[in-house]
């Protein structure tokens, strides 16, 4: 069953001059942990605001748990839990006061659904009397999640909950989402960190208001249309320059300790020639191998290719 449905949703700003969301369609199944993956300005927040009935789309239809975002907005507000990208709790209320306030808004009590928030809330309970504005980033994030869950929502909408948070807190947060999924809550979560995609069951890649692809993380990786290789040597930056200078290499970019690249054609075996070339350019400890693309490789492939700067442009800046 589809719990969140977006059907050809478009949204413009500035009297129609800025197209933020362009005919977006996808759906999230009941109980699914679904990731919306894309950089700033991709349209993620607009989609969240449309789904939470805070913003109306210019065109298209959307529904949450079978309720229409326009007609049934009051019902939707009762059954979704929303964590906006910007910290939106009351900074001058304490942890406990914020929680009680949000429970009261939804006509419930902290006790009524305590089991749902217990494991998260207990981590911040020692700071019950501290004002929310004085909490650390990680603790604010946990309190916001508790407040979004306090009315036992059917659907949880989380807009970039892990942005700007360090690796340790990010891991903790994703562990929390996994346990919430076990409670049967449908979760739509957005992130600009492509490495978090693999923690979702299905993902939509979004860029400049358009959906690039919707699939399981594995499905997206398998759909990568060409062979992808990784290479490194004792001088990685020189290797990047050398590989980019070759006409028979289509794209080459850094990815962690390796460079990733494609050949313009996978028809012939160009690998031997490449190794010979690298050695002739003085590279030592050369490693080259075919790899399975990660989500970021797929995203780069799917993105508008005209975005690469020319050498001359880069040269001009420095």
């Amino acid at each position: 069953m589809e719990t969140v449905v977006l059907d050809h949703i478009s949204k413009t700003y500035e009297k129609g001059t800025v197209l933020a969301v362009d005919e977006v369609s996808f759906s999230v199944n009941k109980g699914e942990l679904f990731g919306l993956i894309g950089p700033d300005g991709a349209g993620k927040t607009s989609l969240f605001r449309i789904l939470t009935t805070l913003l109306s789309a210019d065109s298209g239809r959307a529904s949450v748990a079978g309720f229409d975002v326009v007609k049934d907005y009051k019902t939707i507000r009762r059954i979704v839990g929303y964590m906006p990208g910007r910290f939106s709790l009351y900074q001058d209320l304490t942890v406990k006061e914020n929680l009680e306030f949000f429970a009261a808004l939804f006509g419930t009590t902290v006790e009524a659904n305590y089991s749902l928030i217990k494991s998260i809330y207990e981590q911040i309970k020692p700071f019950n009397d501290r004002r929310a504005g004085k909490l650390s980033g990680g603790m604010k994030q946990k309190l916001a999640l508790c407040c979004a869950l306090i009315h036992k929502p059917q659907v949880l909408l989380l807009d970039e909950p892990t942005t700007g948070v360090d690796v340790v807190s990010r891991r903790e947060f994703w562990d929390m989402l996994k346990s919430l999924k076990k409670e049967g809550i449908t979760i739509l979560v957005s992130t600009p960190y492509m490495d978090e995609a693999s923690l979702c069951e299905r993902i939509a890649l979004i860029q400049s208001g358009k959906i690039l692809s919707v699939n399981t993380p594995d499905g997206i990786r398998r759909a990568y249309p060409v062979k992808l290789y990784a290479a490194k040597s004792d001088n990685i930056y020189q290797l990047l320059m050398d590989l980019r200078a070759l006409e028979w290499i289509e794209h080459c970019y850094a990815s962690g300790e390796y460079l990733h690249f494609n050949f313009v054609s996978d028809e012939q075996n160009l690998l031997a020639g490449l190794e010979e070339y690298a050695v002739s350019r003085g590279h030592r400890h050369l490693v080259v191998r075919e790899i399975i693309p990660d989500i970021e490789d797929c995203f780069i492939r799917l993105m508008n290719e005209g975005k690469w700067l020319s050498e001359e442009q880069i040269h001009a800046i420095i």
């Binding site: 894309g38 950089p39 700033d40 700007g164 990047l240 850094a254 970021e296 780069i300 975005k307 420095i318």
Partner: peptide, 25 residues
């Protein structure tokens, strides 16, 4: 200070190209 937060993967890499060039000079 976190120069690449939230930017797309291609822009992020181009940013690093600029960093490398700057360092090389």
């Amino acid at each position: 200070d976190e120069p690449t937060g939230g930017v797309d993967p291609i822009t992020r890499r181009q940013f690093w190209d600029m960093i490398y060039k700057a360092a090389a000079t």
